[in-house]
Structures are given as structure tokens and as C-alpha cells.
Design a protein around this nucleic acid. Structure first.
Lengths: 328, 328
DNA sequence: ATGAAAGCGCTAACAG
DNA sequence: CTGTTAGCGCTTTCAT
């Protein structure tokens, strides 16, 4: 409630001196600065960020747009963003687009004017349109490549390699792959890598089961199809689908990993609580969120070194859901 | 980028007419209003919310403070808040306090000035201090009772009753209870209800195992203690602990529900994916978030009917983790 | 029904 | 080093 005027009146200086003492301390006499700070403290003065932003163009807010906060993948990214933003002095708007491209554009434009920059996690919308919605605000994209916007990617190719190498090393020769929605960027990146792997390794056969929605229900379908295809292993493009498959296979009395090995992707927090625990590719999700804030900070500061893409490495976590096939 | 001036210039009216056409449509001639709206559309005009707030005192932002976004409990509440806030035209600041009372105060005061009101989900901090940090902004508390702040509670007593009635009906007579942290409000509310239940029902014995942190690791300890106490059922104050217990019991070769029944509380999304699936008390988490926004909206509007507490009912979901005890 | 002008709280020129 | 002035974009008197 206290304003710069109140503080100024209390100390007997002008408002600009107060403003300077607060934002450019070195430009003001040490004695007056101390008095101003003391008075501000006493009055419980808190600068009005909106007013400051109106004048200076700096809001100290950032915006984070995610498809679904209940998806543990995005919850982890959000946690990382929150962490780093807090220490960097940013407050963060979080907007959940409900996996809807149109909504995504809408929420982006609704927060764009109140922030210094935006982090778009796995955006579902068209690049042109969503970037237009940012109104030119500095933007960083996570987990998808945009033409003219810095992106933080993860090493999908490496993850696919590690997972399939693992299955091949165990002796699997017929592996089913459950792909993600065709519209998903990382989904299509991953299936491309899977095909590349299949071509490079003639001793294994990859059976493509089709596209599945990123929920456990997708895993139910995938599990049945994998069984019908007589594969000895099922590789799902994300953990939710893998977990659904685990459940479905158990209900059908098919032993994992005895009759079927299952591998996921993401290493969501629940992956080590399933039965059996899930072998999956770990992505440093929180770190991705933190790096997003860092990249955005640099981008806001006009550091063009931030404009390239950055790729985070991933690591296969071998747990109980994989073993050699039965006939070995 | 377009401002009211641009729109005004385009149409050939004054800025105040533009402002009125946008915010008080009935106070302006229908024809000019149409022209203004058309021009605004054409120029892609988006009002600057910060500037509007500076003048009118209304920001159309709300703040949501939660202890941990990676906890699926709070992720669900957040989803509900996001949903309702979006349709109500609010953008939402989300602040994760990392379960730290001091941090909680800090994040509250850092966003308080930029919002019309605040939703505090399961606040960990001292009531006086956190309310002071809101700077008098309308506030609604979820899942904890504050003296002078409207609260949205859930029917813990009813949930405890349903869970224990269920176990008693199955024939359990010696039931272990794993309580939450002593500092947790709903934790202490729940254990009080458990004790009340124990006193009211002389035919069952409740063994209090102690206080556990709300993570799966807490469930590991609780499981061992429940076994040592020779209980036939374990009731955990939340799902995470129950899931940890499930895992620990399975690893020890103790059959659930054959040798030990397990009941949780919250019905987190993962509860139906465990093995066996978890019997637990369902809390309408998303609805709680939505109601929080509604209550806040009324509170902001000065509707004093919003000042009382509201209690959401809960419902036991019986799944595979409970059965009659072995000796039945 | 519309316009002119003031001002929300703050910072950034511009003087001194 | 400090004060005065102007103005960010918008809403809101106060006139007309």
C-alpha cells in the first residue's frame, strides 16, 4: 500500500531518489540510501511491479505454457522452472493448454503482455501462430524444434539407441513399437529414429503397432497388439503407455518380463513404483526446466549465443521389466 | 503492440471512446462500438493488463500457492484452478513453495501485488504470517482451516469413517494407522478422527505406527511396522505412503490383500495403476480447485456469503488392496 | 454519447 | 548526487 511518495515524504527526499536507491543503489549517496532503505522497511514498502513494468518494460515475470500439468512429465519440468525462476527473481505464470492447440495460442497471448519472456513446453500449436501470439516476446521452446526460436531438445536418437541396443543385447529379435500421436513432434522424431535403427540393424525386426494417445489406455491397446504380433518385447514411446501395457499384460496373465519385456521413455516418477518396475529412458526433466529459464534469461538479455539449440543427454534406466526372451 | 491510441486514430474517435467500447459496451453508440471493435480486431489489439490494473485496481490475475507441483495431489488441484480460471478470464501465477513455510511466505508476498486474489493450497506456514504476506488481498484457503479466511475443506471425518467401516466390515480387528507429519493440518485432523473412531468402536483396535513423511519412503517404514505390530490391515493417511507400503510388502513377499489389506487416502491418479490397485478415499481434487476459484471470485466481488467454510464430500473407492483377513 | 484531461505508481530523461 | 518533469497504457471523472 505504501508507495514511493510515502517513502520519499518520510525521508524528505524526492521520489526519484527513492526509486534510484532501490533500483540503482550505487547512484545515490550512501547515507541517504540507508535512510531510504530504512524508511521503506518501516513502511513495509513493496514496489508495484505492474507500474514498474509499465514504465521500464521489465516485469520480472515469465510465462510457462504446458499441455497438461497433471502429466508427471510436465509437472517435473514445471518444478524445475519454478525452482530456477524463484532464485532468479522471477514470478511465473503457468498456463495449461489442455493439449489443445487453439487454447494454447489463446493462453499465450493472454499472458504474453505481462511477462519478460515465455517458455513453451512441448507446444502443440503451429509454430507461426503461436509465435505470433507471443507478440515478439523472447521465447524458448522445450522439447520441440522451432525454425526461428531457440529450442532445448533432448537426445531422442540416443535414447532410442540405448533402449533398442539393450533389448537386442538381451536377445530380442522381434520388437513391437508403440508410437505416439502423429501430431506430436517428439513422437514423430522418435519413430523416425526407430526406423533408422531398424534399417541399421538387420538382425532385429521392428513391428510398428500404430499411433497411441499418451495415456495408459493407449497402453492397453498396444499390449494386445504386441501379443498378437508375437513380439517378445514392447517399446513404448512414453512411460504412460508402457505402464498401461504393464497393467494390461498382467491382467491377461502374461508375465513381464518372462513372456514380454517392456521399455518406456521419460522415466516419470512413477516408473519405479510399477510392478514390475519399468525399464525406461531417463530424461533430466527438472534440469530441462531450469535450463529453459537460463536460456530465457540470456535471451532476454539479448545474448545471441542463446539462439542455438541445446540437446540434453538421456540415459537408459534398466529395471525389472526387461529380460532375455523366453526361448533363450 | 497496438494501443488504444492506435485504435482510436484508426476509427477517428477519442481513446476514451475506445476504452468504453471495450469495457462498458452499453455506454457507447452501437455504430461506433462496432467500428471500434472491428478496428481493434484488425490491428490485433490486446489491452495491456498491467496498465489497466494500474488504473482500475483490477488485474484479472490470481495467484495459486502450492507446496509441491510434482505431488499429483496438487497437480490435480492446479488443473482445476487452471480450468476454471481460464474460463473466468483470469491468468494464474503458480508458486511452488517446496514444502517450506518460509519460502511460502516469500512467494506469497512476491506475487500478491500482481493479483486480485490468492488461493493457498494446504499452506504450511503460520496463519498470521502468511496472511500478512498477502497484503490484505482476498484469499481462499484449500484443505486447511484458517481463523479469519474462507476455507474449502474436505470431509476428512467422513473419509476416515468410510475407510475404517470398510475394513471393519471385512472383519479386520487390528488395524495399523500410518499418520502424516505432525505439522500437517489435514494430517492432524485425520489422526484425531481415527482416534475418535477407535473410541466409538470398541471391537476394533487401532495401532498408531507414528508419523511419516508424505512420500513412498514413508510407506516402506510403515509397512514393516504394521507387519511387526501384527495388524491385518494398514491404513495410510495418504496414497503415496500407501503405495510405498504396497511396494515394500510385495518385496517382502507379503501378499496384499491376502496377508495384509492396505487403504490409502486421496485417490491420486496413480492409485488405480498400482499392483494390486489401491482401495482409497477419493477427494474431488479438480473440483476443489474450481471451487477455490469460484469462492475467490465471490470474495473479490465482496460477497460475504463466501466467508464461511465449505466442505466437499469424499467417497471410498474399493479396489484390490483390501479383502477379509486371512483367518476369516 | 463523446472528448479532454487527470492520474494509477513507477522510472528515465534532463537539469541542476 | 539530487530534484523536476514527462509519460508508460489505460480508465475515469468532468465537461460538453
Amino acid at each position: 500500500m505504501a508507495t514511493v511518495r510515502d517513502v520519499a515524504a518520510r525521508v524528505g527526499v524526492s521520489v526519484s531518489t527513492v526509486s534510484r536507491a532501490l533500483t540503482m543503489p550505487h547512484m545515490v549517496n550512501a547515507a541517504t540510501r540507508a535512510k531510504v532503505l530504512a524508511a521503506a522497511e518501516e513502511l513495509g514498502y513493496q514496489p508495484n511491479i505492474a507500474a514498474r513494468g509499465l514504465r521500464s518494460g521489465v516485469t520480472n515475470n515469465i510465462g510457462l505454457v504446458i499441455p497438461d500439468i497433471e502429466n508427471p512429465y510436465f509437472a517435473a519440468v514445471t518444478k524445475g522452472v519454478q525452482d530456477r525462476a524463484r532464485t532468479a527473481g522471477f514470478a511465473v505464470f503457468v498456463a495449461d493448454s489442455d493439449e489443445d492447440p487453439r487454447l494454447e495460442e489463446a493462453v499465450v497471448s493472454s499472458i504474453a503482455k505481462q511477462v519478460d519472456g515465455l517458455i513453451l513446453a512441448s507446444p502443440r500449436a503451429d509454430e507461426e501462430r503461436v509465435i505470433a501470439a507471443t507478440g515478439g516476446k523472447p521465447t524458448v521452446v522445450l522439447n520441440r524444434r522451432f525454425e526461428r526460436t531457440p529450442s532445448l531438445l533432448i537426445d531422442n536418437a540416443g535414447g532410442i539407441d540405448q533402449a533398442l541396443d539393450h533389448l537386442r543385447a538381451l536377445g530380442h529379435r522381434r520388437i513391437a513399437y508403440a508410437a505416439g500421436p502423429a501430431a506430436s513432434w517428439s513422437g514423430s522424431e522418435r519413430i523416425r529414429e526407430v526406423r533408422r535403427y531398424a534399417e541399421a540393424h538387420e538382425d532385429v525386426e521392428i513391428v510398428e503397432l500404430g499411433n497411441f494417445r499418451p495415456y495408459v489406455t493407449g497402453g492397453y491397446q498396444a499390449a494386445d497388439l504386441a501379443v498378437a504380433a508375437e513380439a517378445t518385447a514392447l517399446f513404448a514411446y512414453n512411460d504412460l503407455v508402457a505402464i498401461g501395457a504393464l497393467e494390461r499384460l498382467r491382467n491377461r496373465g502374461i508375465d513381464v518380463p518372462g513372456d514380454m519385456s517392456v521399455v518406456g521413455f521419460d522415466n516419470v516418477s512413477f516408473a519405479e513404483l510399477t510392478y514390475p518396475t519399468l525399464t525406461t529412458v531417463d530424461i533430466p526433466l527438472r534440469a530441462l526446466g531450469k535450463r529453459g529459464v537460463d536460456a530465457l534469461t540470456r535471451h532476454v538479455a539479448g545474448d545471441d549465443a542463446a539462439s542455438g539449440d541445446m540437446i540434453s543427454s538421456v540415459e537408459l534406466r534398466i529395471r525389472q521389466s526387461t529380460a532375455p526372451p523366453a526361448d533363450h
